[in-house]
Design a protein around this nucleic acid. Sequence first.
DNA 1: GTCTATAGGGTGATAGAC
DNA 2: GTCTATCACCCTATAGAC
Lengths: 190, 190
Amino acid sequence: MPERINRRDNIVDVAAKLFVQNGYDATSVRQIADVVGVTEAALYYHFKDGKRELLEAVIECQIPDLLNIVDECGSAETLQDFIVQFGQQMMALNPKRVEKLRWMVTEFPRMTAEERALLHHKQLAFQNRVAAALERFISDPTQARTTAAAIICLMYGYGFLFVSLDLQSVTDVDKNDIIQLLAQGMAATR
Amino acid sequence: MPERINRRDNIVDVAAKLFVQNGYDATSVRQIADVVGVTEAALYYHFKDGKRELLEAVIECQIPDLLNIVDECGSAETLQDFIVQFGQQMMALNPKRVEKLRWMVTEFPRMTAEERALLHHKQLAFQNRVAAALERFISDPTQARTTAAAIICLMYGYGFLFVSLDLQSVTDVDKNDIIQLLAQGMAATR
DNA sequence: GTCTATAGGGTGATAGAC
DNA sequence: GTCTATCACCCTATAGAC
């Protein structure tokens, strides 16, 4: 195996950055090659199926993995505490992560069935992990799953509306207040 | 004024459909002209500034107006009832509406400052209307605003995750359960 | 592995006739 | 208002030399 396996990863990294920043259609193979510092022909050597294969590679490495966020909330001793910690972790997500999520939404219609399945699988795993963590506080598994879904929806909705659409720059609603409200509410239905 | 003011609207309608379906970059002026049934030159007569002006027109008419949803919940007599009704209205939104929202997220980075301001203005108006409706049940205005933001985030998050990303096809979490849970929780913090 | 060169086609946009 | 004709440019992709 060649010493420069890095070149392929290098290309994917650059492509990912440009795809997320400008969109798949607005990014040309030429542009990617220029940033990488090679010619288009070299790029087609690494990705025989061209731009589409490049997109596949980017999609696979761009699907966000949030599982570790759940683990960071292990110290919580009450449901309310857990939701506050979890919510703060989610809302403190690296802006890059939010960008990735936004991009997954924009490119979803272009994905193949397998790519969609991969995305669904990762998202379900995340949801299940959150539900499992909630079972420390919520005995009914179905209710734990519903609660997990509700929390995740709220967090993602906040990300899309307030971060991706930058609503946070024009409203005075405090994100910590939203988390507190949710935590109190979910804890109160127990 | 000419009898065919319709032609301009006609073009915007077609452009909107294609932009939402395939994205701005993946839609060519030629394609729009073909569907409308005119030539590109005719199109440039109506939109002197070309494709970008077309996008402006589409953005303006595509920003969703959800204000009437709030009015439909006037019969609710408790906070819990209101949230259930509101949530069901939101989740029953025409799939076309969800598509529009998805599209706004995808094209946001391409928007000018004025276009973003227009979007923010409409979204804030919606949020304020919901908060105002909530003041029937929540006396503290700040808490009403926070509650409104939380509900809206959850609904939008559901739309993006479960509808736009089609997570609803692979999970058994019931959307009515989510609404019920939220309604109980928000009502319990009173 | 990377290059040069080029094919073949789509793109946004405009000039000028009707 | 709408057309035909045309422009200059950019795109994806490939062949073949090094």
